[in-house]
Design a protein around this nucleic acid. Structure first.
Lengths: 335, 335
DNA sequence: CTGTTAGCGCCTTCAT
DNA sequence: ATGAAGGCGCTAACAG
């Protein structure tokens, strides 16, 4: 026995196929009586609409595409979690692409996602290629850039300023008396570069910037790398008195390395992380970090897409800055 | 200007539409000469096949569905990463659903995924509802269950035995002289239940099982919860001499709580984690954990789906057990 | 509010 | 190896 189609439901309920279609998509446009009959028939036959057919006919699917740079990055899994929560109970579903932090991979993925006639698209950051920007700008659906900010989004952007967040964190460190602050950085993707820019701006403002204190690696970040970066720093620049890490994994690794070496935090070395993923606040001593609103960003981005699909007008301001929260803890408090 | 269709490419290259279609899907069935002409036309027009139309006509899409219990669980993000790596450069893409650890949500998601005519489906574990099992068994595509093992998979299962892994870890702890071993557990999803079963079996074998030493919470796991569970344990059962944690976050939290309380590990308290996500091995002292082959599981599951879609026969054995690796470190070594 | 007609763009089937 | 005809299941556009 084959899967029932719209026609089968129509026959069963004694109406035409298009009426069933309407009963499903715009119930208000169908009389209550027919709607009831149709619902019974649908239930009885176990009818489920064919997604491909309706996409083909309407040139619009219920798929929302999300392009993330990595699956194993906790930041983006939080964004996804926030986005997917908003989708619960709706007709929409998530299709996910992994760009591997490559703008070119992203560029290759975009046309594939666009053929799905998506109801919306979410992409990470603002560092698309020119071609990607064009494709996205011409896409027949809402497009949200996330986890960054710019006055000039493709459509809408939801995020915060990585540069400003770092700037404020480093300002705080300087205010606590740290003078030789190093930067521990992994992967060096665009958002890490922005954090570096904020780091630099804050130190330069006080005449403290020293590019020799940038310890970076192209590898992806994890706690082991954090330990390793700190070890490298201490060998080459033992005089440094604090580290600003591009994310929490690195900060946790740095803190653990300090434990092993019996370096007192923050007396001998200050430590600051980024993202406040949850472990920094549990360490002993507790580690300062910058909380970033990851799930909120995902949720807000998705909500915009749903709103647009429900024909609501776009917000007056296309740049939605959700801010950040510097969470000052023992690891940077000297006073 | 509209998007070019197969017809446009056909006109441009002077052949019929169906020939273009074949050149794309079964290049070997088209003469070299035509193929070359068609390729030029495709390039020139920037043709991209319409996914909905081809799904409708062929009753088969290039979407592979994955149902995960959570996005923020590192275990499943690793599975996804492994799966997505295998997909790189293929025509397939990933569509992801979030079951939120609910078998009923999963049951509701399955029909929605099946209407996509997926090229394959990956689901977590073996605890589907009966209805889910039926739908999956009748699905017209390969179905892989992951991160568990059973002699009776729906189609194929790729994973390892959570119960056996826990059993061996706890056996090791007992061999090191631990006698009052507690279980710290979060969420209590099926795989955690299995770990609990292995924990229990090992202790019962030596007459050491004490159900009062089970400290659990339905909350999702994180480092803070780990600290909290250990604190609770110490208040109620200060005589316990080791903890087996249902995952690494909990173990890290337990270890951090020990640091604060100046409890010596492993002398006063042994600690064992699960999954070996990377932080346990960096702690001081290093924490024993059970490595689970998460990315391998994702990759293997996906490879099976690709193979089946390339008309390769299924493996003789439908249960693929990738095993685990008990990584013994300082936190449980007393001898 | 309901129905008729005509595709959407591709692939299956059958022919050559 | 190539092509012609038809249909996949649904919805847009237009009627009534």
């Amino acid at each position: 026995m084959k899967k029932p189609t719209l026609k089968d439901v129509a026959r069963e309920s004694g109406v035409s196929a298009i009426t069933v279609s309407r009963a499903l998509r715009t119930p208000d446009a169908v009389s209550e009586k027919l709607r009831a009959r149709i619902d019974v028939a649908i239930e009885k036959l176990g009818y489920v609409a064919d997604a491909a057919a309706s996409t083909l006919a309407s040139n619009r699917s219920n798929i929302i595409g999300v392009l993330v740079p990595s699956f194993s990055n906790n930041v983006f899994s939080d964004v996804l979690a926030g986005a997917s929560r908003v989708l619960e109970g709706t007709k929409y579903s998530l299709q996910i692409g992994n760009t591997g932090y490559s703008a070119l991979t992203e560029e290759a993925l975009i046309p594939r996602f666009l053929t799905l006639k998506p109801a919306g698209l979410i992409v990470a950051g603002i560092d698309q290629t020119e071609k990607s920007r064009q494709m996205l700008a011409q896409a027949n659906c809402p497009v949200v850039q996330v986890m960054d900010t710019t006055p000039d989004p493709i459509d809408v952007i939801v995020g915060f300023s990585n540069e400003q967040a770092s700037f404020e964190a480093v300002e705080h460190m300087i205010s606590q008396g740290f003078r030789r602050v190093a930067f521990l950085g992994t992967r060096m993707d665009p958002r890490t570069q922005q954090r570096l820019a904020g780091f630099r701006a804050a130190l330069e403002k006080h005449g403290l910037y020293d590019e020799k204190l940038l310890i970076t690696t192209p590898q992806k970040s994890n706690v082991a790398i954090g330990r390793h970066l700190l070890a490298t720093l201490l060998e080459t620049h033992p005089e440094c008195d604090a580290v600003f890490c591009n994310n929490d994994d690195v900060a946790v690794g740095a803190a653990l390395e300090c434990q092993r070496r019996h370096i007192r935090v923050p007396q001998q070395l200050g430590i600051c992380g980024f993202n406040d993923l949850g472990t920094t606040s549990q360490m002993y001593p507790e580690i300062t970090s910058v909380y970033t609103p990851r799930t909120e960003v995902g949720a807000r981005a998705m909500q915009y897409i749903l709103d647009r699909n429900a024909d609501q007008p776009p917000p007056e301001n296309r740049t939605i800055d959700l801010g950040f929260d510097l969470r000052i803890r023992a690891s940077t408090q000297r006073h």
